[in-house]
Design a protein around this nucleic acid. Structure first.
Length: 418
RNA sequence: CGGGGCGUGGCGCAGCUUGGCUAGCGCGCUUGAAUGGGGUUCAAGAGGUCGCUGGUUCAAAUCCAGUCGCCCCGACCA
């Protein structure tokens, strides 16, 4: 993409309604814009990051044998009355009457719908286990949306559901998901901790939360700096001083952002919604469920919370909107522009996703914007460099500048992108 | 929902306490010129019913009431 005809509106100053760093930078770097409180539009750069995160999630889900589906956001309220959660969830659920006078809701989560789906087609233990997932927009009328996309009323979630014939099967799927979640967050470049949590209204026997330590986090957790063991603050008293697991590390209260949560649901939904199958002995048994969620928008915000400096975002390579940005610091129509275009085409030819800053702006503006939007590699092209047959490659993360000969640029870029 | 704060061109703000001529500043935007490696300079422009409604007054961005919106703390967070 060439910046001169792209929609990447960066801001020099932070809009006054942003408080936390990820929100400020997402606005300034032109990733998002607010429509109303708790509802955001994703601009091209923001959407690209979302898509990168989705790609990583899909790869990991598919490789553990989960299959992708897409469930409706529009749902009948009756389904929720049947499961017993209608009253429980209350005002958070967006509720309305359709033209046939039928009470409808916009899905805040999908246990009910998926259970209903599966029960109609799964009749025998021979059809189990099944693991399904989707990446979809959830709607929650939050009492207090805040911190940009960290708590919003409309957000993208990956939710997966496992269906097993017994607890042994559930435990296996839960454990596979646990591993996949670690892989996903690792690949997204996040440092995270896993805490035992309170399943809350979701129900079930146990749950684990995947948390990114960040001052702006809304959740408090107790975390052992030595062995990494953690528990969510709600689940246990905060009186403990030493880690209950390794007995050595200090147990300290930390703020964190919840980016994933996995639950062993058991028969909490399958029983009331009558999702049953015939077991080996011909008995009618409810399916044993697990459910596994990831906040896709939150991964983006959390990645920024963990990877930024005073100049802007520092994207982990795996989720960066572009892999490299070419900075044409001379504005003239001369050889440097020709070379920048040539390099752009060549990188494009070897499938490197590159942004060419060919705007009629001064060098300073381009440097500032490049730092702000945080693309890992900055390829700096100028008359000065070209005279000595060179291109500068600046690493956003360290600020290190590598000078390479023109003919070696592609090779070096490939090398740096590994 | 309780407490607090804020709404003035696209963005950031001043003016409001103590009402008074054509409502200001910085950035951005348009045009021209110069400049050209870390948010360039000069000149000329465009752009605002001061969130909205009502009230007080000769006169309201400014005072009063209501209302809408936004942010923060708390409650809540499946």
């Amino acid at each position: 993409m060439k910046w001169s005809n792209a929609f990447i509106p960066t801001l020099k100053e932070t809009p006054s309604d942003a408080e936390v760093v990820s929100h400020k930078l997402m606005l300034r770097a032109g990733l998002i814009r607010k429509l109303i409180s708790g509802v955001y539009s994703y601009l091209p750069l923001g959407l690209k990051v979302i898509e990168k995160v989705k790609y990583i999630i899909r790869r990991e889900m598919n490789s553990l044998g989960a299959q992708e589906v897409l469930l409706p956001a529009l749902q009948p309220a009756k389904l929720w009355k049947d499961s017993g959660r209608y009253e429980e969830i209350g005002k958070v659920m967006i509720n309305f009457i359709d033209r046939r006078n039928k009470q409808m809701i916009l899905g805040p989560t999908h246990e009910e719908v998926i259970t209903d789906l599966v029960k109609k087609d799964i009749k025998s233990y021979r059809q189990l286990p099944v693991v399904l997932y989707q990446i979809q927009t959830k709607f929650r009328d939050e009492p207090r949306p805040r911190f940009g996309v960290l708590r919003s009323c409309e957000f993208i979630m990956k939710d997966a559901y496992s269906f097993d014939k017994n607890t042994i099967g559930l435990n296996q799927n839960y454990s596979k998901m646990y591993d996949a979640y670690c892989a996903i967050f690792d690949r997204c470049g996040l440092k995270f901790v896993i805490v035992e949590a309170d399943p809350g209204i979701m129900g079930g026997d146990m749950s684990c939360e995947f948390m990114v330590l960040a001052d702006s986090g809304e959740d408090s957790i107790l975390h052992c700096s030595k062995c990494g063991y953690g528990i969510s603050q709600i689940a246990e008293a905060k009186s403990k001083h030493n880690c209950p697991k390794c007995k050595e590390g200090k147990f300290s209260l930390r703020q964190a952002i919840e980016i994933g949560h996995i639950f062993k649901l058991g028969i909490k939904y399958s029983k009331p919604l009558a999702a049953t199958f015939l077991n080996e002995k011909g008995g009618i048994t409810p399916v044993v469920m697990g459910c596994y969620g990831i906040g896709v928008n939150r991964i983006v915000a959390a990645a920024i919370e963990q990877n930024h400096d005073k100049d802007g975002i520092i994207w982990p390579l795996s989720i960066s909107p572009y892999q490299a940005i070419i900075l044409l610091v001379d504005v003239s129509q001369g050889p440097s522009r020709e070379y920048a275009n040539l390099l752009y085409d060549r990188l494009d030819g070897v499938r490197i996703d590159v942004l060419l800053d060919d705007r009629d702006e001064r060098a300073g503006v381009k440097f500032k914007d490049a730092d702000l939007i945080g693309i890992p590699l900055q390829l700096i092209i100028s008359e000065k460099n070209l005279k000595s047959g060179q291109v500068e490659i600046k690493l956003r993360k360290t600020g290190e500048i590598i000078r390479v000969k023109k003919e070696d640029v592609i090779k070096k870029v490939k090398e740096l992108l590994i």
